[in-house]
Design a protein around this nucleic acid. Structure first.
Lengths: 351, 351
DNA sequence: CACTGTTTGTCAACCGGTTGCCATGAATTG
DNA sequence: CAATTCATGGCAACCGGTTGACAAACAGTG
C-alpha cells in the first residue's frame, strides 16, 4: 500500500445519487457543515463534545442542524466508538408477570436517560440465555440479567466485555440489585405466629433459582426466631399449575400457614385448596411472594411479600447507566426492601 | 507535505492502544481474508451473498471464519446497507397486561427469525408515541405499533420510511392485524339472550381507542340480531379502578348483563358490585374482553371474549418480517378470530 | 486456435460519524 | 513589542463491512 488516497476527495460531481436507503435520505453532518460554512469535524465536535468549539460556532451549527432536521446516524457513530446508547435486558421467562414490572422499570429509566431498551428472553434455559446474551453483547453498551439461570462464571465472563447488572441474584464481583427478603418474611412470619399458627410450610421454586434458596433461608430464620416449625415442600414448576399440584403435599404436611416461592404458586395452591372445600384463611393461611399484577384479583385477595420489582428494574438500569457514564460502583449489591402486604388470604387459625 | 504518512503508523511503540472498543477486539473480514488468502470483498460476498463465490472458496472462507470465531459487526453492516435485523415494538402502555401477550408473541417470532426486538412505550400519549416511533425509526428495519394512539396520517407518514404493521387498529393502506370481534361478541350476546337477559350494557374504553368503537358496534349489531336492548356507558380509564367507578352507572342503567371494553374494567366492576352485595352472575352477568393474564383468578372467574393477543403479536411480527424479506402483502388487514371463554361471571338471570 | 460468453475474484469507493495531530490566529505575559 | 500559551477549526485516517465496475480465468463454439 503506497498511496493512501482520500476516499471523499474524489470529484463527486455526479448528481446526488443517494445510495440504497429507502425514503428520504437524512441530512448528515456534511450537509450541516456546508450550511454553516465549517468543516464536518467541527460539526461533529459541536454536536458531541460540549465546550470544544466556540459558543458562536456552536450556535451556528445548532441552528443549521435544526434547520435541516438533522439527527445522528447511530450506526455511523457506533462504528468508530462502539457506543450505541442501547442496553439489553434478558429475562428468564416473558410469560411470567414477575418480569413485567422489571421490564417496565428498566424501560422507563432507559427512555428517560435517552437510551433504548432491547429485550430478550431465555425461556428458563441457561443455554438459550447465554446465546441471547452473546448475541446482544454485540449491539448494546451493557446488559441487565433478570433472574439469570446461567453460571456465575459465565456471567462474570460476559461482564469482562461490557458492564453487566444482575437482578434477583447475587454474583460475586458483579453489581446486583436484590430484594432483601428478610424484612418482608419477618413480618409475614410474625403475623402468622400472632395468629396462632405453629407450623409453616415453604413451597420452593425451581432448583436453579438463587432467590428461592434465599427465601427458604429467610423463612427458616424467621420461624426459628418466632419459635415456629418450618417445613420445606418442592414444586414442579413455579406456575399456577405447579401450585395446584402442591396442594396434596401441603395438606399432608399438617402446616396451617404456607409461604410460597411466588404468587403464581400461591394462587394455584389456593384455587386447589378451595376446590377441595378448605376455607382460606380460616383453615389454612396462604402468603405469596412478589405481589404481581393480579394478586388482588383472587377471593380472598392474596396476602404477599412484595418485592418492588419495578424499582429493581429502575435501579438496575440506573446502575448500568451510571456505570456506562463513568460514575457508579463497578460491583456490590444494592438491596431493596420487601414488605408484607396484608390481604385476605392470611389470618387467624380457627380450626 | 509530500508524503502522506499514516498517522497511526508512526512509531507507535506505546501499548497496543486498541481504538475505542472495550475488551477483546473481534476478528474482521480482513483477518479472515488474510487467513484464507483471498480479498476481503470476497469474504464479504461469501458470507452474505450465497452462490456468488465458488464452492471451494466458500468452504475455505467459512472454515477461516469459524476458526477465528468471527462474527459480523452489525454497525459496519448497517452503515452502508441500512439493514439492522432489528425491529421496534411500541405499545400504548407497558403496565397493561393486554400487551404482555403481544410483546411475548412478537419477541418469540423475532428471535426465531434471527431478529432482535426493541421495545418502547407511549404511555397512552399520541405525542410520546410519535417521538418514540421517530427515535426507533433510525435504528430498526421496521416497526410494530400495538394499539397506536397517533393519527392515521402520522402512521402512514412513518410507513413511508420503513415498513410498519399495526395491531388492534385498522389503518387504510397499512398492513394491520386485528381481532375480529364479531364472532366472540356474537357468542357472548347469544349466550346472554339464552340466559334470559333483556338489556345489555357496554362499558366503553378510551375515546381515542379505535378498538373500543368496533366493540360497541359489535355489541349493537349482535343485540339487534338477538332482539336485546343495548346501552352504552363511558368509563374514565380502562383500568380496574375505572371499572369500579362505573358500578354506579351500571346499576342505574338497569342492565342485567354487562360487556366491558376490557378485562380490567370487568374485574373492577365485579369487585365493586360484589362489595355492594350484588351476586355475580345471579343478579348481574359480567363479560370482559381479551382474556388477559389473571382473568381466571377472580371469584367467580371472569367470562371473557378472548382476543388471541399472543397470536396477534406473532402475526404482526411475521408480516413485518415477510415485508422486510420482500415477500408478503404491503397492506391489508389480517383478521384473527375471537371467541367466548365461558367462566363463572356470566350466567342465567335469576333475580 | 481465435472468439465470445460466463464465472469468480479484485479494486476502490463508499456509508456517516469520530478523533489525533497540526496550523492558525488571538490572547496572555514578560 | 516580542515571545509564549491557548483556544479553535481543518485535514485526513480511521471504524468494518458492502457493492458496482472491471479484469482475469475458464469454458464452450465455429
Amino acid at each position: 500500500m503506497t498511496e493512501p488516497t482520500a476516499p471523499h476527495a474524489a470529484p463527486s460531481s455526479g448528481p446526488g445519487k443517494k445510495p440504497g436507503r429507502a425514503g428520504k435520505s437524512h441530512a448528515t453532518i456534511y450537509d450541516i457543515a456546508k450550511v454553516a460554512g465549517v468543516n464536518p469535524s467541527t460539526v461533529s465536535r459541536a454536536l458531541s463534545k460540549p465546550g470544544r468549539v466556540s459558543a458562536k460556532t456552536q450556535k451556528l451549527i445548532e441552528e443549521a442542524a435544526a434547520g435541516l432536521d438533522y439527527q445522528v446516524n447511530p450506526f455511523a457513530r457506533a462504528l468508530p466508538t462502539g457506543r450505541t446508547n442501547t442496553f439489553g435486558l434478558i429475562v428468564a421467562d416473558i410469560t411470567n408477570p414477575t418480569f413485567f414490572d422489571i421490564i417496565r422499570g428498566a424501560e422507563t429509566t432507559a427512555t428517560g436517560r435517552d437510551y433504548t431498551l432491547v429485550l430478550a428472553e431465555s425461556a428458563e434455559s441457561p443455554a438459550t440465555e447465554l446465546t441471547a446474551a452473546r448475541r446482544l453483547m454485540a449491539t448494546v453498551d451493557g446488559l441487565i440479567l433478570a433472574s439469570p439461570r446461567m453460571d456465575d462464571d459465565n456471567i462474570r465472563a460476559l461482564a469482562l466485555a461490557k458492564p453487566v447488572v444482575v437482578i434477583n441474584r447475587e454474583v460475586e464481583g458483579i453489581p446486583c440489585v436484590v430484594p432483601d427478603v428478610n424484612k418482608g418474611i419477618g413480618e409475614a412470619v410474625r403475623s402468622m405466629a400472632s395468629n396462632g399458627h405453629r407450623k409453616v410450610a415453604y413451597v420452593a421454586g425451581p432448583p436453579q433459582s438463587w432467590m428461592s434458596e434465599r427465601r427458604w433461608e429467610g423463612v427458616q430464620a424467621a420461624c426459628e426466631w418466632s419459635r415456629l416449625e418450618a417445613v420445606r415442600l418442592e414444586s414442579s414448576k413455579p406456575t399456577v399449575d405447579g401450585g395446584r399440584q402442591t396442594a396434596r403435599d401441603v395438606r399432608a404436611s399438617g402446616a396451617t400457614a404456607v409461604l410460597t416461592y411466588n404468587d403464581l404458586l400461591a394462587i394455584g395452591l389456593m384455587q386447589e385448596l378451595q376446590a377441595a372445600g378448605i376455607v382460606v384463611p380460616d383453615q389454612i393461611s396462604i402468603v405469596g411472594f412478589d405481589d404481581i399484577f393480579g394478586a388482588d384479583f383472587t377471593t380472598p385477595p392474596l396476602t404477599t411479600v412484595r418485592s418492588p420489582l419495578g424499582e429493581c428494574g429502575e435501579a438496575a438500569a440506573g446502575r448500568l447507566l451510571d456505570l456506562l457514564g463513568g460514575s457508579g460502583e463497578a460491583a456490590g449489591t444494592l438491596r431493596v426492601e420487601t414488605e408484607l402486604v396484608l390481604r385476605g388470604s392470611s389470618g387467624r387459625f380457627v380450626a
